[in-house]
């Protein structure tokens, strides 16, 4: 084992290679790895954020749906009430109208009956006199029996 100038030559080669590695090999590789690590971290963070946002949106949507359902229930309730009211009113109107028409008809009937009775009353004396004349075979003077006739008429 003898030491010689190889020592110096190798020293120079070593220093040059260290310098080269330090300058051109190590930094780009580390930079690429650090950048990738950063990008992955960013990506994970974004994913977390997105997941949180999604959960928020879900709760929000559920709340909105609940609210809308409650509102819809209120509207339906109100509509039902309104419908009931309308039906009730219609029924009441119809009954009122029916009662009115019935009263009208009753009035007409009464009127006509009254009129018929009045007419009958007018003619009953004559008819009674004629009838009595025919039965008796002679003229019956109406004036003589006026009181009797009136009583008859009153009877109708």
């Amino acid at each position: 084992m003898s030491l010689n100038a190889t020592l110096i030559a190798q020293l120079i080669v070593f220093l040059i290679l260290v310098w080269f590695t330090m300058k051109f090999i190590w930094p780009p590789i580390m930079r690429a790895m650090d950048e990738r690590a950063k990008r992955i971290a960013d990506g994970l963070e974004a994913a977390d954020r997105a997941r949180k946002e999604l959960a928020d949106a879900d709760t929000h949507a559920a709340e909105e749906i609940k609210k809308a359902r409650a509102e819809a229930a209120v509207i339906i309730e109100r509509a039902n009430q309104q419908a009931g009211q309308i039906v009730d009113k219609a029924r009441a109107d119809a009954m009122l109208e029916a009662a009115k028409q019935k009263a009208q008809a009753q009035a007409d009937i009464d009127n006509m009956a009254h009129r018929a009775r009045a007419e009958l009353r007018g003619q009953v004396a004559t008819l009674a006199v004629q009838g009595a004349g025919k039965i008796l075979g002679r003229e019956v003077d109406a004036a003589t029996h006026k009181a009797l006739l009136d009583q008859l008429v009153e009877g109708i």
């Binding site: 290679l17 690429a32 790895m33 990738r36 990008r39």
Partner: peptide, 30 residues
């Protein structure tokens, strides 16, 4: 006196290291 064989292979293998790592370092992508 220089041991040419030692220095030759030492430099050659240093160049092998550079040849393996340098092109990659230049093309390294994140």
């Amino acid at each position: 006196v220089v041991n040419i064989d030692s220095i030759f292979f030492s430099v050659l293998l240093g160049l092998v290291f550079i040849g393996l790592f340098w092109p990659m370092a230049r093309r390294a992508t994140h």
